[in-house]
């Protein structure tokens, strides 16, 4: 499918002046350690922590795919430093041009390393709803970056909006290596994008799949369950989750998360049907999932809140 048919190419004029300043920040840190689960597929595994200066916001899986002619980066980490170290990892492997930087969704741990790639003049690729989400959330996220990393790193970690939007799906060709990008309906967020690498049958699901780390519902619990069914139908041989280890158990790798989201939806619905309040749901729903997920206590109650205010409209 031609890129022009379903994608909107937008000018790069939106790049903020602050980025020019960020280019002058000295490179910090070594190339990220990468794994190569398949030829040309490079993944850095995020840690199951909140972002801190010590982890530089490297809490999500990020990486790149190398084709004959070019490189596509998939997500850039939670800070300019994370982005610079990812870029150094690309350059440790290949000097081919970085033609695409794909952002799988708006969350800070996936987009705030973008600034490190501006000088490469790639197309920044995102879901059709990413610009609006980024515009609304950037000020909020900037404050969080300041609190976490301090003013200098927050300033360097500028939000770089997408220049190439995926309306529905879009194929990118890196030279004998075709990637199919899909823009999904509201699930983890309202701007989730997945990447299918045909060469090795790898689905880069990003945060549509959490393994080990508790999923965070920032979109729609029912929408997410529906998208999981769509993903399960893809002929993947391997999946790269947004958090947690790469798996070759497909679609078995979806099972834990599907169970969690199903329990969440079912138990919230039961509270609503019984006339229960949000407070009651937060106290009672999903307790059987405690102990099965890293960071459960940090996110679960918030997930219940999100599910409740969604499902009470059913």
């Amino acid at each position: 499918m031609a890129a022009g048919r379903r994608a909107v190419l937008r000018g790069a004029a939106v790049v903020a002046p602050a980025l020019l300043a960020s280019a002058a920040v000295p490179a910090a840190g070594d190339p990220l350690p990468m794994r190569q689960p398949a030829p040309g597929l490079h993944v850095h595994m995020g840690v199951h922590e909140e972002s801190t200066p010590a982890n530089a916001g490297l809490i999500a899986n990020i990486g790149f795919i190398v084709g004959r002619d070019a490189v596509a980066v998939i997500d850039t980490g939670g800070s300019a430093e994370a982005g610079r170290r990812l870029r150094a990892a690309v350059r440790a492997v290949t000097d081919r041009p970085i033609r695409y930087v794909i952002n799988t969704h708006v969350h800070p741990d996936h987009v705030f390393g973008n600034a490190a790639f501006v000088a490469d003049r790639p197309a920044f690729v995102g879901h059709r709803a990413l610009p609006a989400a980024l515009a609304q959330r950037a000020p909020h996220y900037r404050e969080a970056l300041r609190r976490t990393f301090g003013d200098a790193m927050a300033e360097a970690s500028a939000a770089v909006p997408p220049t190439l939007l995926v309306e529905d799906s879009l194929d990118l060709d890196l030279g004998d290596r075709r990637l199919t990008l899909r823009a999904h309906a509201t699930a983890h967020t309202d701007n989730d994008l997945t990447v299918f690498d045909h060469a090795g049958g790898t689905l880069w699901a990003s945060d549509l799949l959490f393994a080990q780390r508790i999923p965070a519902v920032d979109g729609s619990v029912t929408g997410w369950l529906a998208v999981l069914d769509e993903l399960a139908a893809l002929p993947a041989r391997r999946v790269v989750p947004g958090h947690g280890p790469v798996s070759e158990d497909w679609p078995g790798a979806l099972a834990d998360q599907r169970r969690y989201l199903t329990v969440l939806a079912d138990e919230v619905r039961a509270v609503i049907r019984a006339g229960g309040t949000l407070e009651r749901a937060v106290e009672t729903v999903g307790r059987g999932e405690a102990g099965r997920w890293v960071l459960f206590d940090d996110y679960h109650r918030r997930n219940v809140t999100a599910a409740f205010v969604e499902l009470e409209w059913e």
Binding site: A129, A132, A133, Q136, R137, P139, H140, E143, T186, T189, D190, D218, G219, S220, G223, A306, E310
Partner: peptide
């Protein structure tokens, strides 16, 4: 913290 300036809804279209 952040509730008043928090971005509106998770699904704007809906």
């Amino acid at each position: 913290s952040g509730g008043c300036s928090a971005p509106a809804g998770k699904d704007q279209v809906a």
